[in-house]
Nucleic acid binder design. Structure first.
Ligand code: MN
Ligand code: MN
Ligand code: ZN
Ligand code: ZN
Lengths: 132, 132
DNA sequence: TAAAAATTAGTAATAATTACCAAATGATAA
DNA sequence: TTATCATTTGGTAATTATTACTAATTTTTA
C-alpha cells in the first residue's frame, strides 16, 4: 500500500509510462535512457517530467535511485534492496541474486557508535563479454 | 612503491599539502572542503589544482575517491579498502572498523557470470548526535 | 645553460540536475 | 453541470560540480 495506491499522487499517463518502461528492463537505465525509452511511447514528454517523476517515485520507494560513481544516476524498477555488480570494462550494472547479509548490520553496529539501519553492497568485476 | 615513490610524477608543494591535509583528517572531506583546508596553508592555490591532484592521487591509489550519492564526491586519505557508514541525519561519513568479508566476492561470483574483483559496502544509520 | 616536460593559476566550458512558471489536466463540491 | 482548487506538465532558465583550456611558471634533462 504505497502512496500511489493511497491516491496521494496521481497516476498520470507520463508517470504510468515511465514506470512501465522502467519495470520492463533490468538494465538499470539512466534518466536520459529512460527519457529515450519513454519518448517512443510519448514523443512530447519533457526531460524535466522524467526527472521529476523518477525523483517522486524513488522518494516513495516505488523505484530505486542508484549511484555507481558515474556521471549519471541509475534507476531500478525493483524497489526491494538487493546487491549490484558494476562491470569495470563496459560499465553495465547487473543484479546479484544472493541473499542479503543481515549480520553485516550487526557487525557494523558493534564496530561504530551508530544506530545502523541498512547497507548497500556494490561489487565490481568484469562481465562475460569484457573478460579478455 | 607507488608512482610517487617511483618519481613518475613530482611531489609539488601543492600536491604535498593536499595530501598532508587530507591525511590529517578522518572526515572524508569533499573537494571544496579540502580546498578550504589547503588554502589556509597555501592561499593562492586554485580549486582546479585541488581537483586535478585529487584525481591524480586517487587514480594512483594513494588516496580514495568515494561516492555516497550526495552532490559532491568525498575523499579518503586511506587508500586501503574499508567499509563506511553514512548518517541519514547529518550526512557525516565514518569508517567502520570491521574486517572485509571476502567470501562476499565468492558468493557474488557464483550468483553471476562476472569475474568479481572487489566489493564496497556502505552502511546507513544515525550517528550519536542524530539519535533522537 | 638551453630546451623539453610537467605543473600551475585562472578562467571558460560541460553536463547533470533542479527550479521556475504559465498552461493544461484532473478532482471537488456547490 | 460548472466554478474553483490543486496537481502536473512542457519548456526553458538556473545551478553547480567537475573538466578542459591556456599562457605562465617551475622543474628536469641533456
Ligand atoms: Mn537491480
Ligand atoms: Mn574511510
Ligand atoms: Zn563489461
Ligand atoms: Zn548524524
Amino acid at each position: 500500500m504505497n502512496k500511489l495506491d493511497k491516491n496521494e499522487f496521481r497516476l498520470t499517463n507520463q508517470r504510468k509510462v515511465i514506470l512501465e518502461e522502467l519495470k520492463k528492463v533490468k538494465s538499470h537505465p539512466t534518466a536520459t535512457e529512460i527519457y529515450d525509452m519513454v519518448r517512443k511511447k510519448m514523443p512530447r514528454i519533457s526531460l524535466g517530467t522524467v526527472y521529476r517523476n523518477l525523483e517522486l517515485l524513488s522518494n516513495n520507494s516505488i523505484i530505486q535511485k542508484l549511484d555507481f560513481g558515474e556521471a549519471q544516476k541509475r534507476f531500478d524498477g525493483n524497489p526491494t534492496t538487493h546487491y549490484h555488480i558494476n562491470c569495470k570494462g563496459c560499465g553495465r550494472v547487473d543484479d546479484v541474486d544472493m541473499p542479503l547479509n543481515q549480520e553485516l548490520d550487526e557487525l557494523a553496529e558493534n564496530a561504530t557508535s551508530y544506530k545502523v539501519s541498512s547497507h548497500h553492497v556494490e561489487f565490481s568485476g568484469f562481465c562475460v563479454s569484457c573478460q579478455n
